[in-house]
């Protein structure tokens, strides 16, 4: 007797066993890392808050860009593989061709496409989506100077002999 769960589980295993694509692994990683990595980054108290925000944003964006890029390139792979299979008379081996082409495109997407999109999009998106930290403008005023109390010599100027005590007078020993 098979339960609906067993039936579904078997279908899933059969499909993965017959036609496993590099795309599935890449999509799984993109989704899970896109959600969990920013969460853990925001929990890392060893980094400053702004730094955490930037890193988490870039990680989340990478996950989203990766997911979209993999799907788009995979659609291209389908067409390209079909074209090559038709031209080279290998239509029967189309699924095999798709899986190898899928690996090539997933790797190239991870190497060039995703980092390039992230470099171009991180700063503008961060500026648009995250509220800017408002810095209080300090008015341009001279720094307050501490008033130093002057000794009152009651009409007399600063006694000269105190100022030059060590530099004047008779020297003993002739040195």
């Amino acid at each position: 007797m098979t339960t609906p769960f067993q039936k579904q589980f078997k279908n899933l295993c059969m499909n993965l066993g017959k036609n496993n694509k590099a795309l599935y692994g890449a999509l799984t990683i993109a989704v899970s890392k896109g959600i969990l990595r920013p969460t853990f980054t925001m929990m890392d108290k060893k980094q400053e808050k702004d730094s955490r925000k930037y890193t988490a944003f870039r990680e989340g964006l990478t996950g989203a860009v990766a997911f979209g890029s993999y799907l788009i390139t995979d659609a291209g792979v389908e067409k390209l593989a079909k074209h090559i299979a038709e031209k080279s008379n290998h239509l029967k081996e189309l699924p095999k061709m798709k899986s190898t082409l899928s690996l090539i495109t997933v790797s190239l997407t991870a190497l060039f496409v995703i980092p390039a999109i992230c470099n171009a999009a991180t700063k503008p998106l961060m500026n648009a989506l995250l509220p800017k930290k408002e810095t209080k403008r300090i008015p341009q005023q001279p720094l307050p100077r501490k008033e130093i109390a002057q000794p009152n010599f009651q009409g007399y100027s600063t006694p000269y002999h105190f100022k030059n005590f060590y530099n004047s007078g008779m020297k003993i020993g002739g040195v």
Binding site: K10, L12, C13, M14, N15, L16, G17, K18, N20, Y24, G25, T28, I29, S32, K33, I35, L36, R37, T39, F40, T41
Partner: peptide, 23 residues
């Protein structure tokens, strides 16, 4: 189905290992 069971385990491991444990 046996191959698929291994691939499914790999995918599950990918989520738990790479996204959770690695982070």
């Amino acid at each position: 189905a046996a191959k698929g069971a291994i691939e499914l385990s790999n995918l599950t491991g990918t989520v738990i290992g790479l996204a959770w444990i690695a982070s």
